[in-house]
Amino acid sequence: MIVLGIESSCDETGVALVESTGTGVPVLRAHALHSQVDMHQAYGGVVPELASRDHIRRVLPLAEDVLARAGCTLGEVDVVAYTRGPGLAGALLVGAGVACALGAALRKPVLGVHHLEGHLLSPFLSSDPPQFPFIALLVSGGHTQLMQVEGVGDYRMLGETIDDAAGEAFDKSAKLLGLGYPGGPALSRLAEQGDPAAFRLPRPLLHSGDLDFSFAGLKTAVLTQVNKLADALQARRADLAASTEAAIVEVLVKKSLAALDRSGLQRIVVAGGVGANRRLRAQLDAACAKRGLRVHYPELSLCTDNGAMIALAAAMRLQAGVQQARASYAFDVKPRWPLEQLSAG
Results as ranks from 00 to 15, higher is better:
D261P: 02
V274S: 07
Q266P: 13
A286S: 09
R279V: 07
L252V: 07
V270H: 08
D285K: 15
C303G: 02
N306G: 10
L293S: 07
N306S: 13
A289L: 12
R294G: 13
L300W: 09
L252K: 07
V274Q: 07
L302W: 01
S301E: 03
A286I: 11
K255P: 00
A276V: 06
L302T: 03
A258G: 07
V274H: 06
G292C: 06
A287H: 01
G292E: 10
N277W: 10
I268Y: 02
V269P: 02
C288N: 01
L302Q: 00
R291L: 15
A287E: 11
Q283R: 15
I268M: 09
N277P: 04
D261T: 14
D305E: 05
C288M: 05
C303L: 05
L284Y: 08
A286N: 07
T304F: 03
L293G: 10
R262N: 06
K255S: 04
A286V: 14
A276Q: 03
Q283F: 13
L300F: 11
V295Y: 06
R267P: 00
G275C: 09
A276R: 07
A276L: 06
L293C: 09
K255T: 04
T304D: 00
R267Y: 04
S301Q: 02
N277T: 14
S256W: 06
S256I: 14
G307H: 00
V269N: 02
A308R: 00
Q283K: 12
A287T: 06
I268H: 01
L293H: 08
A258S: 09
Q266A: 15
G275Y: 01
T304P: 00
A289N: 10
A271Y: 13
G307F: 00
A308I: 08
T304W: 04
A282I: 09
